[in-house]
Design a protein around this nucleic acid. Structure first.
Lengths: 353, 353
DNA sequence: GGCCGCGATGTTTGCGTAAACATCGATCAG
DNA sequence: CTGATCGATGTTTACGCAAACATCGCGGCC
């Protein structure tokens, strides 16, 4: 090739910005000796292009390193093929695993995922995120969040953006995908009762969390239905540290032989507190967690816990949001993903006591 | 409001697609009685617009619920204000925390973050991700990954996309931001030696990880410099389970009084194994981890560990990539983020043996 | 008093793509 | 043989925005 002034063949005629010599369909068309429309047809895999022509176009694309410009494409098509995900903090296993599943499922459908992290979980922040999201290149939004933060924010949200909510209730107002909190709780509590425990204590999550609330409600309901006394509630904030502090209290209750903990992190702290106070697990106290985080099998002792299928939650979120995108007719409602009890070594029959 | 046929005033004249009644600058301009260019000026906050006019335009925007179309904007401006993040799996704390910091820092700069998760860490996958990324609406890419996976993939990558790498070495070929693995390791090992341990064993991460490799190298170097014997290497795969298995081995070594573990998860498994084998921590064996995950303070006993500042890594990544974007002149090189040793209860002087 | 300069606004244009429509040659039925 | 049909391709246009350039009116200066 002659490189007299070291510009590529068909040098792009604009240099709007440093280092953006992007190749357009027109460039490809010129090299392949066809019209840009034909390039478009090949690029989008339409039939009705002669095999020979198609090959030439593909060659030209390869040679020039052509990549479709997604901005132009989005402008023309009116869709971005991108999903927005709003979540408060990636510090909880659940959120992260759900996000990961969403991203994977979206990729499989040819959608990208744009992340909108919230600094603090306030309605103002949520509102701001929605506002930004709208001028962002996003077709729909999945929110991994408690709904009560959402309500105020969606008021001024134009209806064109579809919303699906994970980890929440409020199926009457939104399309919701969630873990079967109640079912999981019931299984755990019944398992403990089945082992022979007279009743089950509960180390709950924070008051402002619906997930925590539903686990607490289900715990109480299960005990009541079984005709067992409902011990006083002990509250944590999801963190291992709060589990430890709560554990110090629980260790002092000599009649406490079984604890259902609202998540695995708190269970970790609880185990430490019980150990420090000389209460053996599971001989003196049985513990069941919720989540089944990767480390749960390495706790001391390995933790019996309720497994949440976050991957499935993520998948269903994407499915739901895409369905809403394609035909707007999906009714609101909640889809529950079942849990299953993973039995390890932290729960056993009470040792006579 | 009259909602006779529930369409907004100035009903858009095209219905390209169901449910996309999007409002354009022209609509706003018409309502405000100005040209669309003036709307553009207001929208972009340019000076030189009469206060009265500006107010009218803003009112019109509010009334119609105008949102700039980011596709058109990107097409015109030639930039998306979006950063791509490629990472293999969100299952490690480090990746997640880095991602979170990146998203936050990016948001502060007015950039969005698009996530590209990789199903499996192979070069093919990485290549594929890069390929998709190019036709994605992304100005630059941050890769949270071992570099050796990257090399083959970047070959066919056009130079217009800037790349910054976290969690890796190879500062000669890329711009890299990383935790000071060696420094952190040295601090940990020296702390153990300083407590009086004759030498320090090492539970390493997987062979194919550069981060693990550097920790291992630094452990060995520190021991050698101090004139101490280097015990045989014990290898895990980052998981708590592998730490447990390795711990069973280590528990059998009666001369092992101190272990430097390449991450906290493995330390958790190690603690369980030592406990099961009746080796007390820290009386019989001291353990130091790496990462300082949130749960580390609730381990049994609370874990002394090397704190990584993932948030800083994320911030620096964004900073670096934006600098590269603005003036292409940033040289390659590695920025190291310092660590600090968090002293808890899992390391103590050897108890006479 | 005419001209300059400047602030405020309008008009034109083109970014890269793809739908809609137009063209053109070949094939085939009547 | 002629016109309808069809497959393959080209031409026009618009998506929404924002540079670049054009215009317009007004106050000040020589």
């Amino acid at each position: 090739m002659d490189a007299t002034h070291d510009s590529p063949p068909q040098a792009p005629r604009r240099g709007r910005r440093v280092g953006r010599p992007s190749v357009s369909m027109a460039d490809v068309a010129r090299l392949a000796g066809v019209s840009s429309q034909t390039v478009s047809r090949v690029s989008n895999g339409y039939a009705g292009v002669n095999e020979e022509t198609r090959r030439q176009v593909l060659d030209a694309m390869r040679e020039l390193g052509y990549r479709p410009n997604s901005a132009a494409r989005a402008l023309k098509r009116g869709e971005f093929r991108t999903l927005g995900v709003i979540t408060f903090s990636l510090s909880t296993t659940g959120n992260v695993r759900t996000l990961e599943a969403i991203a994977t499922a979206a990729a499989a459908e040819g959608y990208a995922v744009t992340l909108l992290p919230l600094a603090v979980p306030t309605q103002d922040e949520v509102r701001g995120a929605f506002s930004r999201l709208q001028e962002l290149a996003v077709d729909a939004v999945i929110v991994i969040m408690e709904v009560h933060l959402l309500d105020a924010a969606t008021i001024n949200m134009p209806p064109r953006v579809q919303v699906v909510v994970a980890d929440s209730d409020a199926g009457d107002r939104y399309t919701v995908v969630d873990t079967d909190q109640a079912g999981g709780t019931r299984t755990a509590v019944e398992h403990l009762l089945g082992l022979g425990h007279h009743t089950v204590w509960h180390l709950a999550g924070p008051e402002d969390s619906y997930a925590a609330q539903r686990r607490t409600d289900a715990w109480q309901a299960t005990l009541t239905e079984a005709g067992r006394p409902v011990p006083p509630l002990v509250r944590g904030d999801w963190s291992a540290g709060s589990g430890y502090r709560a554990g110090l209290e629980l260790a002092a209750q000599q009649d406490c032989t079984a604890v259902f903990t609202a998540n695995d992190q708190m269970a970790l702290g609880l185990l430490r507190a019980l150990h420090e106070r000389g209460r053996r697990v599971p001989e003196d106290v049985s513990v069941i967690g919720f989540d089944d985080i990767a480390e749960a099998s390495s706790f001391l002792p390995p933790l019996t816990t309720v497994h949440q299928d976050f991957a499935e939650v993520g998948r269903l979120c994407v499915q739901a949001v895409l369905r809403k995108l394609r035909h707007d007719d999906t009714p609101h409602g909640t889809t529950l993903v079942p849990t299953r009890l993973i039995i390890r070594e932290s729960a056993a029959p009470p040792s006579g006591d």
